[in-house]
């Protein structure tokens, strides 16, 4: 009886852990499947035209994504101009002064902002910029992406500044250096690599955001001039091309997906190598 029990318990032990190992294999193989599949299909669509040409009119094959690539770069530049300062100074505030109730509320608001679905951020930017100006624009898209950048920028800034030991701050303060000078010339330089990494990861994350751009930056099949015209972007192009019925557009959607994924994975992998012990965070 006891022998049978012991055998049963051992079998359950092996079976259950075997199952968890199987689940782990399944989860990781999803990633490899995605990489392989997109790599395979995307690679066939990539050529010089892809980077240098405009999209061709419907029905003609060929053409490229030059305007979408430039559009994405412009959107990201604009987004950083909003997301980075707010995130950076917000993070400094939270790490250096954020111990009181105000700190609590700002931390709470940051978490809340992080949880807002990206499509709702799009609605916000739409009502804020598109409705009053009566047109879709790079500006509106950039603002939407900028807002999306804030919570992660705040959090990573706060996290990295906290890693700076308080003895370093105290040493500087003990020498009679003012607090703002201590933060600016002692604390921030000590954490600068982490801070830049955080921003980079943040950019990689919003680079692939599509939902907030649908009705802010909209789309454009030609060049977008300045900041007040609708613009194409890689993620929105992937969406538009993927649900279209044209074979050639599907090919270009795969190619864009490969470019975007390469960008995101390169940043994630690269920062991992730079800062091996840091959690890159799941979003």
């Amino acid at each position: 009886m006891t022998g049978a029990m012991a055998w049963r318990r051992r079998a359950v032990n092996i079976g259950a852990f075997g199952l968890t190992a199987l689940f782990a294999v399944v989860t990781v193989s999803v990633l490899f499947f995605l990489l392989g599949y997109i790599g395979w299909h995307g690679f066939r669509g990539i050529n010089l035209d892809f980077f240098l040409r405009l999209p061709k009119p419907v029905g003609e094959s060929g053409g490229g994504m030059a305007n979408a690539i430039v559009g994405t770069v412009k959107l990201l530049a604009l987004a950083s101009m909003i997301g980075v300062p707010i995130g950076f100074f917000g993070g400094i505030y939270l790490s250096e002064f954020g111990h009181g109730p105000l700190g609590f509320w700002i931390r709470y608001a940051t978490d809340l902002l992080n949880g807002i679905p990206s499509i709702v951020v799009g609605i916000f930017a739409y009502t804020l910029v598109v409705l009053p100006m009566r047109q879709f624009s790079t500006l509106a898209g950039g603002i939407a992406l900028g807002i999306m950048m804030i919570p992660i920028a705040v959090r990573s800034t706060e996290e990295f500044l906290r890693l700076v030991p308080s003895s370093v701050r105290e040493a500087s303060l003990a020498l009679g250096v003012r607090e703002w000078k201590t933060i600016l010339f002692v604390v921030i330089p000590a954490a600068v690599r982490g801070l830049l990494t955080g921003i980079l990861l943040d950019l990689a994350r919003v680079a692939g955001e599509t939902a907030p751009l649908l009705f802010t930056a909209f789309n454009n099949r030609v060049w977008s001039h300045g900041w007040l015209e609708p613009t194409a972007s890689l993620p929105v192009m992937i969406f538009t091309y993927a649900i279209s019925p044209y074979e050639d557009w599907h090919r270009q959607a795969w190619a864009s997906a490969l470019v975007l994924m390469f960008l995101v994975l390169a940043v994630n992998g690269g920062t991992r190598l730079l800062l091996p012990r840091r959690r890159t965070g799941a979003g």
């Binding site: 990633l31 692939g208 599509t210 997906a257 994630n268 890159t280």
Partner: peptide, 10 residues
């Protein structure tokens, strides 16, 4: 974690 970093449109 990389799985979480892949954009949703992909």
């Amino acid at each position: 974690e990389l799985l979480a970093a892949i954009p949703s449109v992909i």
